[in-house]
Design a protein around this nucleic acid. Sequence first.
DNA 1: CCTTGACTTCAAGCTAACTTGAACTTGTAG
DNA 2: CTACAAGTTCAAGTTAGCTTGAAGTCAAGG
Lengths: 148, 148
Amino acid sequence: MLAIGEVSRRSGVASSALRFYEERGLITSERAGSGHRHYPRSVLRRIAFIVFAQRIGLTLEEIGAELAKLPPHRAPNRRDWSRLSATWTLRIDQRIAELERLKAGLGDCIGCGCLSLKRCKLANPGDRAAGLGPGPRYWIGDQPLAGA
Amino acid sequence: MLAIGEVSRRSGVASSALRFYEERGLITSERAGSGHRHYPRSVLRRIAFIVFAQRIGLTLEEIGAELAKLPPHRAPNRRDWSRLSATWTLRIDQRIAELERLKAGLGDCIGCGCLSLKRCKLANPGDRAAGLGPGPRYWIGDQPLAGA
DNA sequence: CCTTGACTTCAAGCTAACTTGAACTTGTAG
DNA sequence: CTACAAGTTCAAGTTAGCTTGAAGTCAAGG
């Protein structure tokens, strides 16, 4: 069992962040009689997952949903983890594809002045990986005219 | 010359956002006697640039710095724009490379439980494209032990 | 002239993901 | 026993990128 400071040092994630993750239900801890948190070693793998997932572009809420799929009362094994990461691979590929499209569009769209909202769909609408807040962005594929 | 509502409709960017961009120096407007903003058509291309750049992962501050490189008293031409986007291509490639590393690391690191801070450097330290706030993240390449 | 809608400014609010500070308790070393 | 580091909770602050609301102005149609 590890104290919060120990986990923080080993993971590189601040203690305050760990408490925050716990509040959000991403990790759990047992409490000593004193009230101090104690973590099993396996929490480190869980934290690694969180950090990787963030880097890929998932929100903490999404990450929480993924983690909830792990077996509740058993230490996750290799297969459990790889099942989760399978969906990531898809997301990563989608994000890469979007970046490739953006790259290709740099010359075509900004360079040439093609600002037609109909022609210039560089990104797939469904992608929330880059999570840039609300508000329509026709150029990035939000379908300005079709539909509603 | 276009009114702010017109620019908003054509670009898909909210009027409030346009005012915000102006406040941050990303775009400029002329004022009618009434105080209303009037934009030249060229502002649309500038806005397109902003939207694309955000999608790639640049902050508004970085975008402002890029836009500041455009000729001040002349409408930017194709070459001007492509000069700017040249640096983006590099960023995009770096980000793609990071995503590829993450993808490759999914199985290796989380799957197998390799949580060693020394071995598990999946991302390049300098990359701010994903901009996930402060705090060290050893696993993503922040060099925990070397250096200070 | 009156209404309506588009515009103005300014201040405050929002979300995500944390951090920071205050005030307090616990565990350990000397 | 006394320090002091490390832990606790809770509330409030931070940054980015806007949005929303209040209060008021301006322009065009009837």
